[in-house]
């Protein structure tokens, strides 16, 4: 043990027998001194690469390597934001688009969750609707826009319905597989210890299927954001999809890129939210993965 301490093993390094410790340490685990030195350039690299890319991008614009029609430079995109902000489109777009995406995600995701849980638990339910759902899943929802106009009109309903359609399947599939992936032996535990079906679902099934369920919601959130572009083709006067569609109609490449960057930012937000959720909902996994 003393040998280890003098070598400066970082806390938490698993130590087995002292005899093997020395070789193990030299081979795999960097000393505490090197760790700090290494982490700095890594962080720098992380920031440096995108920065260099943006610089190169701006340079190619300034030096006219590519026409601004093909790829407008970063400054042009900043200008596009300024323009959208001045008119008020950007401020109007975010709340309305997020509300559409959020409502659709909530309804679609909940429906997918319920369908997935029921199909995961009941073979009868699975036989009843899994095949039709699998068929529906493969339909590109963008192709459904005209039909949704016929079915749901041109108001908010059709837009939200489209997003519901986009977000229902990721949650359904991942929930279903999450539950089916649970070891049957654990369900037997519930039976031998006289747990009711509901208690088994609450204490065993849902917690263990939660990682899959969260993956489903993560995908669904992405699908809901993408669904906005299709949904906001239908009679919209505001929204990120509306901005993109109008820009496409009037050849504003800079605004299209600006809109895409908004999507990227939203995707990042979704990722952060889901990571936080995972930390809150899956503490038992966090310990396992060592954060």
């Amino acid at each position: 043990m003393t040998a280890l301490e003098t070598l400066g093993a970082p806390a938490g390094v698993p130590v087995a027998a002292p005899t093997t410790t020395h070789t193990y340490e030299r081979a795999g685990v960097p000393g505490s001194g090197t760790t700090r030195v290494r982490r700095v350039p890594q962080l720098l690299l992380r920031v440096l690469a995108p920065l260099a890319l943006i610089g190169l991008w701006q340079l190619s614009d300034t030096l006219d390597w590519v026409s601004p029609q093909v790829l407008p430079g970063p400054m042009a995109i900043l200008d596009a934001y300024r323009e959208l902000w001045a008119v008020g489109d950007l401020q109007a777009a975010l709340p309305i688009s997020l509300q559409r995406a959020g409502t659709g995600l909530l309804v679609g995701g909940t429906a997918g969750l319920v369908l997935g849980v029921v199909a995961g638990l009941s073979v009868t339910a699975e036989r009843f609707y899994d095949a039709p759902l699998q068929m529906l899943r493969t339909i590109p929802f963008i192709a459904l826009v005209p039909l949704f106009v016929v079915w749901f009109g041109i108001g908010e309903t059709s837009k939200v319905a489209l997003i519901i359609g986009a977000s229902i399947f990721p949650v359904y599939l991942n929930t279903y597989h999450g539950i089916r992936g649970i070891d049957r032996k654990l369900l037997e535990v519930g039976r031998t210890f006289d747990m009711s079906r509901w208690e088994t679902i609450r204490l065993v099934v849902v917690p263990l299927a939660m990682p899959g369920i969260l993956v489903g919601w993560r995908y669904a959130a992405g699908a809901a954001l993408l669904g906005l572009v299709a949904a906001e083709q239908i009679n919209s006067q505001a929204g990120i999809g509306y901005i993109l569609n109008t820009a496409n109609q009037f050849q504003r490449t800079d605004i299209i890129l600006a809109g895409i960057l908004v999507y990227a930012a939203l995707g990042l937000v979704v990722d952060v939210v889901m990571r936080t959720l995972e930390h809150v909902l899956l503490p038992w996994r966090a310990t396992h993965d060592g954060r």
Binding site: D183, K185, L186, E188, V189, V204, P207, L208, M210, W284
Partner: peptide
């Protein structure tokens, strides 16, 4: 049981 069969999520 032969294996502990603990619920990892609890």
């Amino acid at each position: 049981f032969q294996e502990p069969r603990l619920i990892q999520a609890q």
